[in-house]
Design a protein around this nucleic acid. Structure first.
Length: 250
DNA sequence: GCCCAGGAGCCCG
DNA sequence: CGGGCTCATGGG
């Protein structure tokens, strides 16, 4: 079994097991949750999200807040930003640093993240979403990576979910799942894993969004930092692992 | 108390 | 370029 065959096969298997996810969660933009979303803000089947700049901002801020952080902590941080009337371009641009930091405290690393968010909205002020839409994906990605506080994963989340560009997101669960299945080395670079997915999948926005969301969902269940339980009951039932060329660093 | 969570920057060899 | 350190809260 080759990587070329495994990458699409894992997607099909996870999609069949869990169904479409409907990421990125939206809960606060424009005053409240979406009409058709579940309690987590998921909106399966609705690929028109984000509808406006407010929702795009929520996605980007959420992507920064969730860096190495449980999503529940991010939700309460965003709720408190919203109730302090700070969850808007004006609020995030001109609100007092200490006030924003206090509001997002529950998300952890709150001093850094306050500055990261401020850096991002300062960038957005000079280069709003509408203007970004006129640039190529690679150009936008480079601009995002120049912002202090936005690394490869956060940049790809903003590209994939806020700007609707087919840029595959590699997160800790994706890395861990593929690594434990013997498909990549533990030290494989972000770029090499990203290229792995992007070269063996059709360049399709919905596929990229769903695949990433499915990997996170699956990872939360079977791939904690320390392996536990009976292991992966979904992917291990297939014959993915072994006998495939492994991707190493670079 | 310990471990974990949808990373990123910085410094050092 | 890679490895180790720092940043921090809330839930299990």
């Amino acid at each position: 079994m080759t990587l070329q065959a495994n990458i699409p096969l894992i997607y099909q298997t996870l999609l069949k097991a869990y169904g479409s996810q409907g990421w990125w969660p939206i809960s606060f933009a424009d005053g409240g949750p979406l009409q058709d979303c579940d309690s987590r803000g998921y909106h399966p089947g609705d690929y028109d999200i984000p509808l406006d700049d407010t929702q795009k901002l929520e996605i980007a801020v959420g992507a920064i807040l969730t860096q190495n952080t449980n999503w529940n902590n991010v939700v309460s941080a965003m709720a408190s930003l919203a109730s302090a009337n700070l969850f808007s371009m004006q609020g995030l641009l001109h609100g007092k640093i200490e006030q924003i930091a206090l509001a997002i405290k529950s998300a952890g690393y709150y001093n850094q993240k306050t500055q990261y968010i401020r850096n991002f909205v300062c960038f957005l002020q000079g280069f709003p979403f509408k203007k970004l839409e006129g640039e190529s994906t690679e150009t936008v990605r480079k601009m995002l990576l120049d912002i202090k506080g936005i690394g490869p994963e956060t940049a790809d989340c903003i590209l994939l979910y806020a700007l609707k560009r087919p840029s595959f997101v590699i997160d800790t669960y994706t890395r861990r799942i593929l690594s434990r299945m013997g498909m990549i080395s533990e030290t494989a670079s972000y770029h090499s894993i990203k290229k792995l997915f992007e070269s063996f999948l059709e360049k399709d926005l919905v596929v990229f969004q769903e695949y990433h969301a499915l990997l996170v969902h699956h990872g939360k269940h079977y791939y904690s930092r320390k392996p536990y339980g009976n292991g992966d009951q979904i992917l291990r039932s297939q014959s993915f692992c072994g006998n495939s060329e492994e991707v190493t660093a670079s």
